[in-house]
Computed example of a mutant assay.
Amino acid sequence: MIAFVIAVFALAGLIKGTIGLGLPAVSMGLLTIFMSPFQAATLLIVPSLLTNFWQLFAEGHVLQLIRRFWLLLTGIIIGSVWSIFPTLGHAEFHSEALLGGMLALYGLYGLYARTMPDLSRHETWLSPMMGYLGGALTVATGVIVIPVMPYLQTLHLKRDDLVQALGLVFTTSTVCLAIFLHQNPVEDIPTDYTMSAIALLPALIGMWFGKKIRYRISEQKFRTVFFIGLMVLGSYMMLHQFGWI
């Protein structure tokens, strides 16, 4: 199991280092093939939190971002506390299927999203709504992807601002997820922070190699393969959850 976890986070880190995203989605998608979503989410905490923390503070201007996106962050916190979805750990809830659907949508979005409409003039009322849905889905699936990531891209931020905004959102959601997992333990599934810490090193090594790869291959080709892979993985998870394959 340790070797499997190391391999998963090395691959997820490689992808994040190459295209700047994908560590939580890839990790959760692969880990849940062999373990429960709740257990997979506990392993994600340390590597996700520290890599996103680094992404957030790499460029500075953190307070400026918080002042702009405090409504979005507030929505994430509220959604993680009062989710409209059944949360991780509910035995009768098909969280694997929901996560698979999220990954498939993420892959579809990544393949076909080219130019996004400019919704920045509606930011005041859209931010808390998008944040709430993102927080609610975080404690339901362990991943904050839809709708927060596409929403941030509709604000047409500069490249560095977008990377930092994603780091801010991912850090906030990971903290909320960690608090949720700690306050809602599942019997017979202990929170394994030791294994989560072990996963950090391969994730960082993968990110380092990913940055090397970024300069050697076409990012667009890699993104295409990555998002197709997410669609296939997500579709498999949905079909497997319902016993169709």
Rank of each mutant, 00 (worst) to 15 (best):
T42Y: 06
I198W: 12
E123N: 09
F53I: 06
M195V: 10
T174W: 01
I213F: 09
F69I: 05
T141H: 09
Q183L: 14
P24Q: 00
G100T: 10
P185Q: 08
A7W: 14
G60D: 10
V163Q: 02
L230S: 06
T18F: 13
M35F: 07
V62W: 07
I78G: 00
L103Y: 10
L177R: 05
L71Y: 07
K221R: 14
A40I: 00
F93T: 00
L126Y: 10
I146N: 13
L14V: 01
D188W: 09
T194K: 12
L200D: 02
L56A: 05
M238T: 10
S196Q: 01
P190R: 05
T18G: 03
D161S: 12
M1T: 11
L181F: 06
I213D: 04
L177W: 02
Y106I: 06
L63F: 11
I213E: 03
T141L: 04
E96A: 14
A136W: 06
L43C: 00
L162S: 01
Y132V: 03
V148H: 04
M1H: 14
M195E: 13
I198A: 04
L204G: 02
G134D: 10
I144E: 10
Y193D: 08
L204E: 05
H94E: 13
V46H: 11
A40Y: 07
C176K: 06
S218T: 03
W125S: 09
L11D: 12
T171H: 05
T115F: 06
Q241V: 09
I78H: 03
Y215Q: 15
I19V: 15
V26A: 03
A91H: 14
L201G: 02
V169W: 08
P190V: 04
S127D: 01
G131V: 00
L168K: 06
M130R: 05
T174L: 08
G20M: 03
K211F: 08
Q64D: 11
I15V: 15
F242L: 03
L157I: 04
L162Q: 02
A7H: 13
W244S: 00
A165Y: 01
L103W: 14
A136S: 13
L152H: 00
D188Q: 12
I84T: 13
M238P: 03
L168W: 04
F242G: 00
A58K: 14
L126P: 01
A178D: 01
M129R: 13
G142R: 05
L88T: 01
Q39W: 04
T51S: 10
L157N: 04
A140W: 09
G243W: 07
P202T: 05
Y215P: 02
L63Q: 12
S36K: 07
Y132C: 06
L72K: 08
R159V: 11
I19F: 13
R159P: 04
P86I: 00
I15D: 15
M28W: 13
G22R: 06
Q220N: 12
P202N: 03
M149K: 08
I213G: 07
M116C: 07
A113M: 03
T124A: 15
R121I: 10
T32R: 12
Y109G: 11
V143K: 00
D118Q: 11
L119V: 05
A3V: 14
L23T: 01
D160C: 04
M129L: 15
A140Y: 09
W82A: 12
Q164W: 00
G210H: 02
K158H: 10
G75K: 02
Y193H: 08
I6V: 15
T171Y: 02
M238Q: 12
I76P: 00
I77R: 03
P147G: 08
L168P: 00
T224G: 02
